Computed example of a mutant assay.
Amino acid sequence: MDHGMIGLIERASQALRRMRMDDRGVTAVEYGVIAALILVTCITAIGFLGNSVFNNLYLQIANATQNALSR
């Protein structure tokens, strides 16, 4: 084998070894999974509570506006 090819293989092997030891990417993936779970939880909660909460809020704002305009 050519010395250049052996050096290339050695450098590639070292790079792969460094990548296996580097856990920064794993941490980013874990944070992404946590953020996705929080998002799903929020969407589910809004789906269950959203209609009644937002309808009540809308009615309160509408009533307050109507009362303020009728004075």
Rank of each mutant, 00 (worst) to 15 (best):
G4L: 14
G4P: 01
G4H: 11
M5F: 10
M5T: 09
I6H: 07
I6M: 11
G7E: 14
G7R: 04
L8A: 15
L8M: 15
A12F: 07
A12L: 11
A12C: 15
S13F: 00
S13P: 00
Q14A: 12
Q14F: 09
A15S: 08
A15W: 05
A15G: 06
L16C: 12
L16A: 14
R17N: 07
M19H: 02
M19V: 00
R20E: 11
D22Q: 03
D22V: 00
D22M: 05
D23H: 10
D23C: 02
R24F: 08
G25P: 00
V26T: 06
V26A: 15
T27K: 13
A28D: 07
A28E: 04
V29S: 06
V29R: 10
E30R: 08
E30P: 00
Y31Q: 08
G32T: 03
G32A: 06
G32R: 03
V33E: 01
I34D: 02
A35M: 06
L37S: 07
L37T: 06
L37G: 08
L39Q: 14
V40S: 03
T41Q: 06
T41R: 03
T41L: 10
C42L: 13
I43T: 04
I43C: 03
A45I: 14
I46Y: 02
I46L: 08
I46E: 01
I46K: 10
I46C: 01
I46F: 02
F48R: 05
L49H: 09
L49A: 03
G50S: 12
G50E: 02
G50A: 05
N51F: 09
N51I: 13
S52Q: 14
V53T: 13
F54M: 15
N55R: 03
N56G: 11
L57I: 14
L57G: 09
L57D: 04
L57V: 15
Y58Q: 04
Y58E: 10
L59H: 12
L59M: 12
I61M: 11
A62V: 02
N63S: 12
A64Y: 09
A64I: 08
T65V: 13
Q66P: 00
N67F: 12
N67Y: 10
A68F: 08
A68S: 12
A68C: 11
L69A: 15
L69C: 12
L69S: 13
S70Q: 07
R71M: 02
